[in-house]
Amino acid sequence: MTATMPSPVTLHGRAVRLVPLTLDHAPGLLAAGGGDEEIWRWRPSAPPASQEAMRRHIASLLERQAGGRTVPFAVVLRTTGEAIGSTCFHDVEGFDESVEIGSTWYGKAHWGTGVNAECKVLLLDHAFGPMAYTRVMLRTDVRNLRSRAAIERIGGTLEGVLRRQYRRRDGTWRDSAVYSILDDEWPAHRARLTGTPSPAEYA
């Protein structure tokens, strides 16, 4: 059995909502950190530092969504409705019942605030619950120690390193650290992160 890609849905957390990404999110995402080189340092594309560049970035994700490869979300604060970042589900070729969480970024004002952990809990609950995936993959540049630590905090197990996966923007080769979480591992990790092994109702 091969799992299908999730349909665009809204996932509700205590501090944030994950909503289907649209071009309307471009102004908020640009303000949150579109032109910040530190945020985009490890990403293959240059920072979308203008309204037009951010719209092109979003349009490329929506094109991949139309092709059944990606489901992109805007990360929106519940208190203000402000878009502060984005994240995606990606198809994983060569694996049954597997999905990838990636292309994630947040404005620096929300680093270290718990936003990332809450977003990952929402995505993992959806992947292992309604979508019935058995494996979630997460990848990052092997040199991105901050991202690797965040993945390990939520329970990611290092599977290995893909050497010379693709060129970085500076022309050097990127090696990618590949992590995964399995469905039968998630309840214990969820309990450690949230205090309960099963999805709780968010107010």
Rank of each mutant, 00 (worst) to 15 (best):
R192N: 10
A117W: 05
V115T: 15
E100T: 02
G81D: 14
D170S: 06
R192S: 12
T194F: 08
E185V: 05
V76S: 02
K120T: 07
E185M: 07
V178K: 07
D170Q: 04
P130L: 11
S45T: 04
T194I: 10
H110Y: 15
T196W: 01
V142Q: 08
G171K: 02
M1K: 13
R192Y: 08
A26M: 07
P72L: 07
G156W: 02
L11K: 07
R135A: 06
V19A: 10
P187V: 00
V16E: 02
E152M: 14
S98N: 06
T4H: 09
S7N: 15
L158T: 10
R17I: 00
V142H: 08
L18C: 06
Y106G: 01
L124K: 00
H189D: 03
L23R: 11
G129R: 11
G195S: 13
L145A: 15
E159Y: 10
V99R: 01
S7W: 10
N144M: 06
E152I: 07
M131Q: 15
G112A: 10
R169S: 08
S60Q: 03
V161I: 15
R14S: 13
D141F: 06
A32T: 08
R41K: 13
L62N: 09
R143V: 04
L11E: 09
I154F: 12
L162C: 11
L124M: 03
E152S: 09
R17A: 14
H90I: 09
T22I: 04
G85S: 12
F128S: 05
G68H: 09
S45Q: 03
F73N: 03
Y133C: 04
H12W: 06
G160W: 06
G160A: 04
L77P: 11
V121M: 09
W186F: 03
A26W: 04
M54K: 01
A15M: 13
D36I: 12
Y106M: 14
G35V: 10
H126Y: 14
T113K: 15
S180I: 10
T79M: 12
F89V: 00
Q65V: 04
K108F: 04
Y179V: 08
D175F: 05
G68S: 02
T157K: 11
D170L: 06
L145S: 11
W40Q: 08
G13C: 14
P199S: 02
P197M: 00
P187M: 00
P27I: 04
A15E: 14
D184L: 11
V136H: 02
S60V: 00
T172D: 01
N144H: 15
H110D: 08
P48Q: 00
W105G: 05
L62E: 06
Y179W: 07
A83S: 14
S176Q: 00
R78G: 14
L122Y: 01
L162R: 10
P130T: 09
